[in-house]
Every structure is written in C-alpha cells, then in structure tokens.
C-alpha cells in the first residue's frame, strides 16, 4: 500500500457510489439553468407590469432618464463584481464581495440624491409615499431571480457561500431597483432609505442565509 495515496478501496467505492447516484452533465444542466433563470426574469417582469410599469408621474424626462441610467450603471458594476466569476469556480475574494455589497447601495443612494437635487422640488416629500410599496416592489422583483440564481449555482461555492449569496442578493436588488426607478418618482431621503435601500439590505441578508444553505457543497 502506498501511504501517500488513498487506498485503492476508496476509488472503487467512490466509482460504485457515483454509478448509483448519477449527476446531470453540463449540457443538460445549462438548459435547465437557462429555463430557470428565464422563468424567474419573466415573473419579475410580469410583477413590474402588474404594478403599473413605467410611470413618469410628472417627472422631467432628464430626471427620470438620468436616475435610471445612473442606477443601471451601478447595478451593472455590482452584477459584474458580485455575480460574475470569470472563468473560475471560486468567486471573488470575501473582502471584495463585502466591500462592493456595502459600497454599491451607498453609491445608489448618493446618486439618487445628487441627481434629484439638481431639480427643483426633486427631493421633496410626497404625501402618502412612505416607501413601503417600493420596499415590497423591489423585494418582489429581486426575489425570483435570487432564488433562481442561487439554485443554479447550488453546491459550487465552498469558500464563502454566505457572502457570495449576499453579493448575489444585493446585485439583483440593484438590478430590480432600475425598474423601480422607472416606477417611483419619489426621492425624499427617508423614502429612499426605506423603499430603495432597505430592500437591498433585506435581499443581501436573504442571500447570505440562503447562500449558506444552497451554495455550500
């Protein structure tokens, strides 16, 4: 017996075990994943349409376009930084994920305040728009893709499944916020904190918890 090698029995029993528990090869798994993610995105879009879709609500077109464009850029960077893995099974470093997960909602908040402040009454309070509807809307839009993406990556992150899940949650929350910005005209700061930033925190926390359960091998 070679002491620097596992015994031959290990290989034999392993081969027997995988014969008894076949796994899905990549071509099939890719199709399943595509269907799953596409289904989740369709549900989100259906929810967006169900909530009323794009609403200008008296906003200046440049205010609306600028807000959406800025949010879209922040969301794109967040998706690249926290969901993208490049050609590697193990994602980015934990410190990187944590930094981007904290910085991107702050960047979103800063952008919305900055851009809305350029317009008269841009940061004013609107009666009856506390932020709960935006909170629910963002959570609804982000939840389906979050579950779908976590499930499509199940059992693959052995290094930091929780943080990877958190990153996915925040990034998808930001992507959902692009649609929410097309719907919500309010930029009153307490409203932004409750309706636009809190859901990112909630989705991040949900991703953290689900990531530990689903992403860990």
């Amino acid at each position: 017996m070679n002491r620097s090698m596992p015994s031959a029995d290990v290989k034999m029993s392993l081969l027997r075990e995988i014969e008894g528990a076949p796994s899905t090869p990549r071509p099939l798994e890719s199709k399943r994943t595509a269907r799953l993610v596409a289904g989740a995105l369709l549900l989100s879009i259906a929810a967006f349409v169900g909530y009323g879709g794009v609403r200008i609500a008296g906003r200046a077109p440049s205010l609306m376009i600028g807000t959406i464009a800025g949010t879209a850029i922040i969301a794109a960077v967040a998706v690249w930084a926290m969901i993208g893995r490049g050609r590697a099974m193990v994602g980015r470093a934990s410190s990187w994920l944590t930094a981007v997960a904290i910085a991107s909602p702050l960047a979103l908040l800063a952008w919305k305040i900055f851009w809305s402040a350029q317009y008269e009454h841009g940061l004013d309070r609107i009666e009856g728009r506390v932020g709960f509807r935006c909170l629910g809307f963002t959570l609804t839009l982000g939840a389906f893709p979050l579950v779908a993406l976590l499930f499509s990556r199940r059992g693959t992150d052995a290094v930091h499944p929780g943080r990877a899940g958190m990153g996915i949650g925040v990034a998808l929350g930001l992507a959902a916020t692009v649609l929410v910005d097309a719907w919500c005209p309010v930029a009153y700061v307490p409203h932004l904190l409750l309706g636009h930033i809190l859901p990112l925190v909630v989705l991040g926390a949900a991703g953290l918890w689900l990531g530990k359960k689903i992403l860990a091998p």
Binding site: V10, I18, A21, R87, V90, G155, A158, P217
Partner: peptide, 28 residues
C-alpha cells in the same frame, strides 16, 4: 477525499467551462 470527489461529481453540470479544477477541489 471520497466526499470531496463525490461533491464534485454532484456539481459537475455546474462546472464552468475552462475553470481551474484544482483550487475548486481544494476549497471543497
């Protein structure tokens, strides 16, 4: 070792084309 290889077997469909398997195996 057996468990690690088994986990890799279960997740093989989600292995990214062109990714490095060694760091992944060690991390598992």
């Amino acid at each position: 070792v057996q468990q690690t290889m088994l986990k890799m077997h279960c997740a093989r469909g989600r292995f990214i084309r062109g990714a490095g398997v060694v760091p992944w195996a060690f991390s598992i």
